[in-house]
C-alpha cells in the first residue's frame, strides 16, 4: 500500500514533479506539473495539467497537456486536450478528446 502515491480529492499540487518509476500514482485531486511513473491513474473528477509519462495510463478526469504511454485507456468520463503518444489506445464512448494521437517512436 505504501508503494502507491495517492493525491486525494481535496489536494491540489502545483509545480509538481513526481517520479515513481516502479510504482503506481493515482490522482483524484488536482495536479499541475509532470508525472513519471510505471502506472498512472487520473481518476474521475481529477484535473491534470502538464506531462505524464508512464507504461500504463488511465484517464478518467480532465487532462491538458502531453501524454506518453505504452498502453493508454481513456474512459467515458475523460476530457482530454493535448498530445497523446501511445502504442495502444482504448477510448470509451463518451470520452472527449481534442488534439493529436500518434505512435511512440
Amino acid at each position: 500500500m505504501s508503494e502507491i502515491t495517492y493525491i486525494s480529492k481535496e489536494v491540489s499540487v502545483v509545480e509538481g514533479v513526481l517520479t515513481a518509476e516502479d510504482s503506481k500514482v493515482v490522482v483524484a485531486g488536482s495536479f499541475s506539473g509532470n508525472i513519471n511513473a510505471n502506472e498512472v491513474i487520473l481518476e474521475e473528477g481529477s484535473k491534470f495539467e502538464g506531462e505524464v509519462d508512464a507504461r500504463i495510463i488511465v484517464i478518467e478526469g480532465d487532462l491538458k497537456g502531453k501524454v506518453k504511454s505504452y498502453q493508454l485507456k481513456v474512459s467515458h468520463t475523460a476530457r482530454v486536450d493535448g498530445e497523446l503518444l501511445t502504442n495502444s489506445i482504448e477510448v470509451a464512448s463518451g470520452a472527449e478528446i481534442a488534439g493529436s494521437i500518434s505512435r511512440v517512436s
Binding site: S2, E3, T5, V11, S12, E15, G16, L18
Partner: peptide, 13 residues
C-alpha cells in the same frame, strides 16, 4: 494522500 516509497516528489501541496 500519500507519496509512496521509491517515489520522488517536488512541488507545492
Amino acid at each position: 494522500s500519500s507519496i509512496g516509497s521509491g517515489a520522488k516528489f517536488k512541488g507545492k501541496i
